[in-house]
Design a protein around this nucleic acid. Structure first.
Length: 223
DNA sequence: TTCCAGGCAATAC
DNA sequence: GTATTGCATGGA
């Protein structure tokens, strides 16, 4: 077992399966139950069968765009607003005016940019008609960069793409996989390859590993 | 008050 | 190709 695999097993042992990507679960009266600090009751540990329908696919993609440089607690507020406006479906989203859209996603910040990104993405998504997008197709969309593309591929389409985010580089540095110089100079794809070459190409493993890195990163900050 | 959060595009060099 | 800057909100 290599070091990347070893660390994974330690993290899993420490935190347990995370059940990413979280999805909204509102009850019949639109009530939200908080179970995990700052999160809604949408985690599904040890169940990798999501998303289960097109609306859940869309919800993951919208969340991936909204969470760009923004904390998830803020994104949840925006998602709940959209859900209550019945806008977490292609049909419902298309009915939203630009003003209503901006109002709904305001808690997640950058609402001028993100409203534009969402509108462009939903047009792309609609034209897929259920087909899987390629990574390059996603990257051609204005507003979709490497991390958002990989988040969509990994958690919406269950493709074994490893996500590199702000936590991931710090995580590698902390575990002495890379040094300070690597931290400054390695590109997104360089970092991604470290995981790809050391792991089985298994989407369930990739989903869990990324979620555990984030959990570990959040935990680190509270210490 | 300052800093930062599950980035990205535009611009500058 | 690499470095810097604007985008916006709310919590710590």
């Amino acid at each position: 077992m290599n070091k990347i695999e070893k660390i994974y097993h330690n993290l899993l042992k420490e935190y347990g399966p995370q059940g990413w990507w979280p999805l909204l679960e509102l009850d019949n009266s639109n009530h939200i139950n908080i179970t995990k600090t700052g999160t809604i009751n949408g985690y599904h540990p040890n169940d990798y069968s999501y998303p289960k329908n097109e609306n859940q696919q869309l919800e993951i993609c919208i969340g991936a765009i909204l969470t760009q440089n923004t904390s998830w607690t803020q994104v949840e507020k925006a998602l709940i607003n959209l859900k209550r406006m019945n806008a977490l479906s292609v049909k419902g989203f298309k009915k939203l005016s630009i003003g209503k859209l901006k109002e709904a996603i305001k808690p997640a910040g950058y609402y001028n940019q993100k409203s534009k990104k969402l509108i462009l993405f939903i047009d792309f998504f609609k034209n897929l008609h259920g087909k899987f997008p390629t990574r390059n197709e996603l990257l051609e969309i204005w507003g979709i960069g490497p991390e958002t593309a990989d988040s969509i591929l990994l958690y919406c389409y269950n493709q074994a793409e490893f996500i590199v985010d702000t936590y991931t580089k710090r995580f590698l540095l902390k575990n002495k996989i890379i040094d300070e110089n690597d931290f400054k100079t390695l590109s997104y794809d360089n970092i991604k390859q470290i995981f790809i070459i050391n792991l089985d190409l298994n989407y369930e493993l990739f989903q869990e590993y990324h979620a555990l890195i984030v959990e570990d990163g959040k935990n680190e900050k509270n210490n």
